[in-house]
Nucleic acid binder design. Structure first.
Length: 310
DNA sequence: CTTCTTGTTACTGA
DNA sequence: ATCAGTAACAAGAA
């Protein structure tokens, strides 16, 4: 569930709390959650953070990289030295300054979904929690990291991610645009939340064949993709009904209150009040407004424009 | 009990 | 090659 904005919010937090800290211990509670030789990170300083799509990297002084993927239910929790093992939750306001809903995480950390515990030399800790164990942390060399990420598409917020790049990626495939948006080897960072909502904002039916979308429509979709990602980062990401995403300090994001269609099945469209529909595309739940995102609407209009009728 | 959900990879068959 | 479909992974909710 954590997608580009959620991972970026976590990265920003870790960037301001972990840079310069030295790892003194790693406790591997769930072996499947970690790959690599844990001895190689001991006494190493964290010097940099980076992110491509949904993948977060912590760069160590010895050039090794800790690569994180939260998959569906991964959490990264930071516990400062003064409050070891307990969340520093404050109801009402997150550390990013957003209002945040009440949370039921009163048990503190580690908890039963804690898979890895990093301890730093000043006794602060980083917990990698993952209820469903799909997420992982890998210790990689720069070459291994490059190999691992070489097939990823451009990050949506990269300056190289232009509408021309986007159009080149979609013009030769007839797969539904919704499916292609989720293809990390074309575009890194888009998940189900932002794919559904960006298509709504651009008024594109999620079933539309990608090669039916013209350059003009691509520009619109790229505009909304970038905008929704940036808006969500500002809102601290999306803490949705059934996702486990929270900030490293235990507080919640607020972008879920701005969902357009995602998880709004049968609720009124925010533009026209038509009930939002839920269908399956490529096996994934897909939400859209049947009136605002009429199938072929853009195609027909684009065809008429091409013929000079508009 | 079954079915569904999520992101990603791996596999199968067209 | 390319793609659609599906199982697998894990755990919990309905």
């Amino acid at each position: 569930m954590p997608e580009l904005p959620e991972v970026e919010v976590v990265r920003l937090f870790l960037n301001s709390h972990l840079i310069g800290k030295t790892i003194s211990n790693l406790e591997i509670i769930s072996p499947k959650s970690f790959s690599g030789d844990p001895k190689k990170i001991i006494n190493q300083k964290i010097i940099k953070t980076s992110r491509i799509g949904k993948q977060l990297s912590l760069h160590l002084a010895n050039n090794f990289i800790l690569l994180f993927h939260l998959k569906m239910t991964g959490q990264i929790i930071y516990s400062p030295p003064s409050s070891r093992g307990t969340p520093n939750l404050r109801e009402g306001v997150s550390t990013l300054g957003h209002p945040t809903p009440l949370h039921s995480f009163s048990e503190g950390w580690p908890n039963k979904s804690t898979r890895l515990v990093f301890t730093f030399s000043n006794k602060s800790q980083l917990f990698f929690n993952d209820q469903r164990k799909f997420g992982w942390v890998k210790l990689l060399t720069p070459d291994e990291l490059f190999d691992y990420q070489k097939n990823l598409g451009l990050d949506v917020l990269s300056s190289k991610f232009t509408s021309k790049y986007f159009y080149n990626q979609i013009e030769n495939t007839s797969r539904p645009i919704k499916t292609v948006l989720l293809d990390q080897n074309k575009f890194a960072g888009i998940g189900n939340i932002y794919a559904n909502d960006a298509l709504f904002l651009a008024k594109i039916n999620p079933s539309t064949s990608s090669n039916k979308i013209n350059l003009k429509k691509s520009e619109l979709l790229v505009h909304f993709l970038k905008k929704i990602m940036m808006d969500s980062i500002k809102a601290g990401g999306s803490t949705a009904k059934d996702n486990k995403y929270i900030h490293p300090d235990g507080s919640a994001g607020t972008h879920q209150f701005s969902f357009q269609v995602y998880q709004r099945n049968n609720e009124p469209c925010l533009v026209c009040q038509t009930p939002i529909k839920r269908i399956k595309i490529g096996g994934r739940g897909t939400f859209y407004c049947p009136k605002c995102q009429k199938y072929n609407r853009s195609v027909k209009r684009d065809a008429r424009r091409t013929e000079g009728l508009i």
